[in-house]
């Protein structure tokens, strides 16, 4: 049997992604207008270098890279879970309106609460984003469970929900003052530049714990991919798995969007690319997808900071440019 070779290939792909991530992280830490060399950046990372370079690396670039890494993991995990639980390769936080719902929640926390004199903390913003994303997720699940709702119907419902939440967000932003508006608009496009170490710690804790929990249930997820009835007959508590999936997908989307805004299509791209290379076996697809998500965010952010330097483009715009053609490809290919 060639099974061992197949498994070895899957492992090699994951190691390759690890190397790619290390490379893109170092590159990302080095990219910027200060003119530092890679050597200087690496030395600064280990506590050497001037005060200025330490400020640039530790104060600006490292939070950006760490934030991008964990946001990539969280978003990719959400996408994979949603695609698995809905059995829909087109589903992701951005295509189903869940990211928009989270952005709406964050906007409500920042702008609407400010108007009644409450300054929303990071945790409160995250809580609002999470609550909105879980509401949207339940709405999507409700639509997908309708008897005549096929895969495309669910995505079309997502388009409608996206428009709805975006419209309400714009209306809320219309009543915001300039400072709040600037902060809120950044949510629409995604910006890794605003995340601080405290917020990184929250994203890290949520994404790492969620990933570990999902990995524990990797065999159950494998069964869920074959359909809920099959999973049930294989001994999976499908109701529990579905609820766990909804909770973790909404939590990760909500937390990521709350701190860096909407980084579209990573949740779609990461599982789809990984699946096409190493297949859907969750023992390998879970680590592969998470690493791919982190790579895509860091790669897009590095690109966003270099192609129009010294201007920094919104990272969400880059991921959307990368993701939209893939979305159309899957739409045309999958029946």
């Amino acid at each position: 049997m060639k099974y061992r070779e197949r498994v070895a290939f899957k492992r090699a792909f994951i190691y390759f992604l690890c190397c790619l991530l290390i490379f893109i992280s170092i590159l990302s830490i080095n990219v910027g207008s200060s003119g530092m060399t890679i050597g200087e950046s690496v030395l600064t990372l280990f506590g050497k270098g001037s005060e200025k370079s330490r400020f640039i690396v530790w104060g600006i670039r490292l939070p950006r890279v760490m934030g991008g890494f964990f946001v990539g993991i969280g978003t990719a995990l959400s996408g994979m879970i949603i695609q698995s639980s809905l059995n829909n390769p087109l589903a992701s936080p951005s295509t189903l309106g869940i990211s928009s719902a989270s952005a709406l929640g964050a906007n409500i926390a920042i702008i609407t609460l400010a108007r009644i004199g409450i300054q929303a903390s990071s945790a409160m913003t995250a809580a609002f984003a999470f609550a909105s994303s879980i509401l949207c997720m339940l709405l999507v699940l409700g639509i997908s469970s309708l008897r005549r709702a096929d895969k495309t119907t669910v995505i079309l419902a997502g388009v409608a929900l996206n428009s709805l939440f975006s419209a309400v967000t714009i209306i809320i932003q219309y009543f915001a003052d300039e400072t709040k508006l600037a902060a809120a608009v950044a949510w629409t496009f995604g910006d890794l530049g605003r995340i601080n170490f405290r917020e990184i710690a929250i994203v890290m804790a949520v994404s790492v714990v969620s990933s570990a929990v999902i990995y524990l249930y990797r065999w159950n997820l494998n069964a869920m991919d074959s359909g809920e009835h099959t999973a049930h007959s294989l001994g999976v508590n499908t109701k529990f798995m579905r609820n766990l999936s909804i909770f973790l997908a909404a939590l990760n989307t909500g937390i990521c969007v709350a701190f860096v805004g909407v980084i579209g299509f990573v949740g779609l791209l990461a599982p789809q690319i990984t699946k096409r290379v190493i297949g859907e076996d969750k023992r390998f697809m879970i680590p592969g997808t998470l690493l791919m998500g982190a790579f895509l965010v860091l790669f897009s952010d590095t690109l966003a900071r270099t192609i129009a330097a010294p201007l920094v483009l919104p990272v969400g715009a880059i991921t959307s440019i990368l993701g939209a053609p893939v979305f159309v490809y899957i739409l045309l290919k999958e029946r």
Binding site: A223, G227, H229, H232, S233, L234, V236, G279, D281
Partner: peptide, 28 residues
């Protein structure tokens, strides 16, 4: 699941090798 196996009328072909697909049957 160790006592009863059920094959649904509609089965979803997933991007997994035949080997891995059968291996999922060992889940119980």
């Amino acid at each position: 699941a160790k006592r009863i196996a059920y094959v649904s009328q509609h089965n979803i072909p997933i991007k997994n090798t035949v080997y891995d697909t059968i291996l999922i049957g060992r889940l119980p």
